[in-house]
Design a protein around this nucleic acid. Structure first.
Lengths: 219, 219
DNA sequence: AACTGAACTATACACTTGTATATACGATTG
DNA sequence: CAATCGTATATACAAGTGTATAGTTCAGTT
C-alpha cells in the first residue's frame, strides 16, 4: 500500500496559503494559456489542470467542461467591460466629448492588466452555442446602455435623431470590430485606430441627425 | 512482404473518376468539417485526411500544415466574395441604390453554396499569424475597392465627402461585423439585419457628406 | 473516538494526435 | 526493358487526450 504524497496540499512554495483551488484559479490559468492568440476551443482540460497544478479530474469539481469555463470567462469579460464604460460615462456624463471618452476607455482597456476583454473580442463569432450566446448578451447590454444615452442626449439637445436603436447598434458593432482589429497592434497603431473610430462614430451620429431632419421636414 | 491494396486507387465507388487527390479536395473536406461552428484550429490533420479518404501522410504532399490549408481557405473565400460584389456593382454601376445591391449581394452569399465565406467571417480575429494576415489582406482589398468607388461617386456628383478612406473602412468593418452576426440566423432575421446594415451605411455616408460640407464652409 | 463527506490524488484505459520510416506502384523517361 | 519519379500507402512511436475507478487526506459533526 503506497502512501500518497500530495504535490502541494495546503501550502505553495512561495508561502502563499492556498487552502483550496477555486473556479477563479482555473479561469486565470486558462487566460494565461490564451496569451498569444490561441482559441479557447484548442485548450485541453489537462492543460488547464496542469497549469493550476491539480490533477486532471479535479477540474470536474468546478466546471463540467472546458466550454463551461469559457462561458464563465466571457461573463467576466463583459462585466468588467461594462464597468469601465460606465465609469467613463459618469466622469463626464453631460459634457461634450462623451464619445471620445467612451471609445478611449474601451481602447485603453486593451492595454490594461485585464486580459479577459481580449478573449471576448477574439472569440465573438466562434465557439460553442453557449459561448456565442454569452458574447451576444454582452453586446446587447452595451447596445442598450448606449441607446439610452443617445435618447437622453437627444432629449437634452432637442435634436431629431433617426432610429436611436439602430445608431446604437451601428456604433457598438463598429467599436467592437475596430477594437478587435486593434487588439495586438502597437500602441501608436491603436491610438490611430482609436481616433479613426471616433471620427466614424461622429459620422454615424451626424448622418442620423441629418437624415432625421430630412425625414422630419418632408413629412 | 505484404502486398498493399489501396482503398481507392483510381476509382471511387460511385464511378466518379478520381485520378488524384488535389489540394482542393483537402480544402473541401476541411470546409465540410467546419460546418456547425468549429474553429479551424480544432481541425486535425488526420481528421481531414480521414474525410478525404487518404493516408495521413499524404496530407503533406499538398500543405505543410493545417495552418497553411486554412490560409488557402481564406484566400479562396476572399476571392469569391470579391467576385460576387464586383459583379453586383457592374450590374448597376451608376444607378441609385448601389449600396443596397452590394449589401444584399454580400448577405445573399451567406445563403449560397459557397461555404468559404462563413469561415472568413467566423475566424476574423483568431488563428495563427499567417491566418490573420490572410484575413486582413481580404479586408483591405475590400476597403480599397470601396474607397475607389466612393471617390468615383464623389467626383461624379460633385459632393464633398470627408475622408473617403475612413468611410470605406467604417463601411467595410460594419458590413463584415453585421455579416458575422447574421451568419447562422434565420432567413428573415438576416433580411432584417441586411436592411439595418443598409440604413447604417446611409447614415455613415450622409454623415461624411454633411461633415464635409461643414468643414468646407468654415474654412 | 468513530464517522462522514468534500477536496483532491494516482493509476489506468482506450483513443487520437503529428510525424518518421520504409514500401508500393503506375507513369514518364532514358 | 529498366530506371526514376511522383503519389500514395502501411506501420510504428511517443506524446497527449477525456474520463472511469478507487484511494487518500482532513476538517467538522455527532
Amino acid at each position: 500500500m503506497k502512501v500518497v504524497k500530495p504535490v502541494a496540499p495546503t501550502e505553495t512554495p512561495d508561502g502563499k496559503r492556498k487552502t483550496q483551488v477555486t473556479a477563479q484559479d482555473l479561469m486565470d490559468a486558462a487566460v494565461d494559456l490564451l496569451e498569444s492568440s490561441r482559441s479557447v476551443s484548442s485548450l485541453s482540460l489537462r492543460e488547464i489542470a496542469r497549469a493550476v497544478g491539480i490533477a486532471p479530474n479535479t477540474f470536474y469539481r468546478h466546471f463540467r467542461d472546458v466550454d463551461e469555463l469559457a462561458v464563465a470567462l466571457i461573463d467576466q469579460a463583459g462585466r468588467s467591460l461594462r464597468g469601465v464604460i460606465r465609469e467613463a460615462r459618469q466622469r463626464l456624463s453631460l459634457e461634450r466629448s462623451a464619445i471620445r471618452t467612451s471609445v478611449e476607455a474601451f481602447m485603453e482597456q486593451l492595454d490594461s492588466e485585464d486580459r479577459y476583454i481580449h478573449i471576448l473580442l477574439r472569440e465573438m463569432s466562434i465557439g460553442s452555442e453557449a459561448f456565442r450566446e454569452a458574447v451576444d448578451r454582452e453586446l446587447n447590454y452595451f447596445e442598450d446602455e448606449l441607446r439610452d444615452e443617445l435618447e437622453r442626449i437627444a432629449q437634452a439637445t432637442g435634436a431629431q435623431t433617426l432610429e436611436p436603436a439602430l445608431v446604437a447598434k451601428a456604433i457598438t458593432r463598429l467599436v467592437f470590430a475596430m477594437g478587435a482589429a486593434a487588439d495586438g497592434k502597437s500602441a501608436e497603431k491603436r491610438k490611430e485606430m482609436s481616433e479613426q473610430t471616433i471620427v466614424m462614430i461622429k459620422m454615424i451620429m451626424e448622418g442620423a441627425q441629418s437624415l432625421g431632419r430630412k425625414a422630419n421636414s418632408t413629412q
